[in-house]
C-alpha cells in the first residue's frame, strides 16, 4: 500500500473524528431502545442521550462541601484520556487520526488513566456510594486488564505489531484467513471483558442507581450539571472506543485503505454497521443475561483470561 499524502490522511482522520464524536450518544440510545423493545417496553427514543446531555449542559453543578479541586478537573481529564484513546484506534480508515502516536498499549494505558481519575474523584465527596462504585470499579478492572491485554496480544502477534493500524491492515488484507482459531479465542475473551469495560450486564447494570448493584453509576452519583454531561459523554465515547478496538483487532473488514470517495463511503458504512452491531449485541446481552453476583465475577473474567491464554498457546505450540 502506498503511504497516503498528509492531506488524504487529514481527510480520513477528520472523517473519523467527526463520525465518532457525533455518533457516540446514539449508540447508547440504540442500546436502550433495543433493550426496551426486547423487554416489551416502548423505551426512550434513540436521540434521548443527546437530549440528556443538552439538559445537563444547561444546568448548574452542585459540588460537595467536602470536595477538593479534583472534583472540578476530573471530568476534563477523563474526557481527554478517552478522546485521545479513541483517536488512536482505526475505525474508518486503516490509519487512525493519530497515526504514529501510539499503539494498543497506549490505548489501554489511557483507559486506565480515565479509570484512575474517575475512581479517585468518586472518593472526593466523602459519600459511601462513591466509595462503593470506586472500589468495585478498580477491583473489577484488575480482573479485566490481564484478559484485555492477552486478547489483544493475540492479534498483535498475528500481525507482528502492536500498532493498531498495522493490525487492522493485516487483518483486512488476510480476509477470512485472519480468523484463525487462535484469534477467535482472543475475540471471545475480548467480548467478555468488553461487557465489563463498558459497564454492562452481567458485570454492571447501566440502568439502576441501586447501591447494591451499581459500579459505574455509583462513581457518577455526585456529579451534576455540565460535569455530569462531560462524564456521561465520556462513558458513551468509551463504548465507541471499546467497540472500535474490537473491530480493529478482530473484525477489520471493510476498513478503508484508500481515500477515493466510494471506498471511503463504504468504510463509513462498515464502521457504522459494526458500531451499531456492538450496540445491539450489548442490548441483547443486557436483556437476556442476569447480573452476576459481584463475588462470582472472578470466575467469568478469569475464564476470559484463560480463553485468551489458550489462544496464545495455540499460536505458539500448534503447527501453523
Amino acid at each position: 500500500m502506498d503511504v497516503p499524502s498528509p492531506v488524504e490522511e487529514l481527510v480520513v482522520g477528520t472523517l473519523q473524528v467527526v463520525l465518532v464524536l457525533l455518533v457516540a450518544p446514539a449508540l447508547l440510545g440504540i442500546t436502550k431502545a433495543v433493550k426496551a423493545r426486547l423487554q416489551y417496553r416502548r423505551g426512550p427514543a434513540v436521540v434521548q442521550p443527546y437530549r440528556d446531555l443538552a439538559k445537563w449542559w444547561r444546568k448548574e453543578s452542585v459540588e460537595s462541601e467536602a470536595a477538593s479541586l479534583l472534583t472540578a478537573i476530573a471530568p476534563a481529564l477523563v474526557l481527554a484520556a478517552i478522546v485521545v484513546a479513541t483517536l488512536l484506534v482505526p475505525i474508518v480508515g486503516d490509519r487512525p487520526p493519530l497515526t504514529g502516536w501510539g499503539d494498543l498499549l497506549v490505548v489501554v494505558g489511557l483507559m486506565a488513566l480515565a479509570r484512575f481519575v474517575l475512581a479517585l474523584a468518586a472518593l472526593d465527596a466523602g459519600s459511601a456510594f462513591g466509595g462503593m462504585g470506586s472500589s468495585r470499579e478498580v477491583a473489577i478492572a484488575a480482573l479485566v486488564e490481564p484478559a484485555l491485554l492477552l486478547a489483544l496480544a493475540g492479534a498483535a502477534l498475528a500481525a507482528g505489531s502492536t500498532d493498531l493500524g498495522v493490525i487492522a491492515r493485516a487483518g483486512a488484507a488476510a480476509g477470512t484467513a485472519w480468523l484463525t482459531p487462535a484469534l477467535l479465542l482472543g475475540a471471545g475473551a475480548f467480548a467478555v471483558v468488553a461487557l465489563a469495560e463498558t459497564g454492562h450486564e452481567p458485570v454492571d447494570n447501566p440502568d439502576t442507581h441501586l447501591e447494591l448493584t451499581m459500579v459505574h453509576e455509583g462513581m457518577l452519583l455526585e456529579a451534576s450539571g455540565p460535569r455530569l454531561a462531560i462524564l456521561a459523554y465520556a462513558a458513551e465515547l468509551r463504548l465507541v472506543l471499546v467497540a472500535g478496538l474490537f473491530a480493529a483487532a478482530f473484525l477489520p473488514f471493510g476498513i478503508a485503505s484508500d481515500v477515493a470517495p466510494l471506498p471511503l463511503l463504504g468504510a463509513v458504512a462498515a464502521a457504522l454497521a459494526k458500531l451499531t452491531g456492538a450496540a445491539v449485541a450489548l442490548a441483547v446481552v443486557d436483556a437476556t443475561v442476569a447480573k452476576l453476583r459481584i463475588l462470582a465475577l472472578p470466575e467469568l473474567l478469569a475464564t476470559a483470561s484463560i480463553l485468551a491464554l489458550t489462544g496464545l498457546a495455540a499460536r505458539l505450540w500448534l503447527p501453523a
Binding site: E65, A66, G225
Partner: peptide, 19 residues
C-alpha cells in the same frame, strides 16, 4: 483537558452543598 475546562467547567455555575 484545558479546552474542556475552559468551555464546560470553569464558566459554569456551581453551588456547594453538603454531601
Amino acid at each position: 483537558a484545558l479546552a474542556t475546562w475552559l468551555v464546560g467547567i470553569r464558566p459554569r455555575a456551581v453551588r456547594r452543598a453538603p454531601t
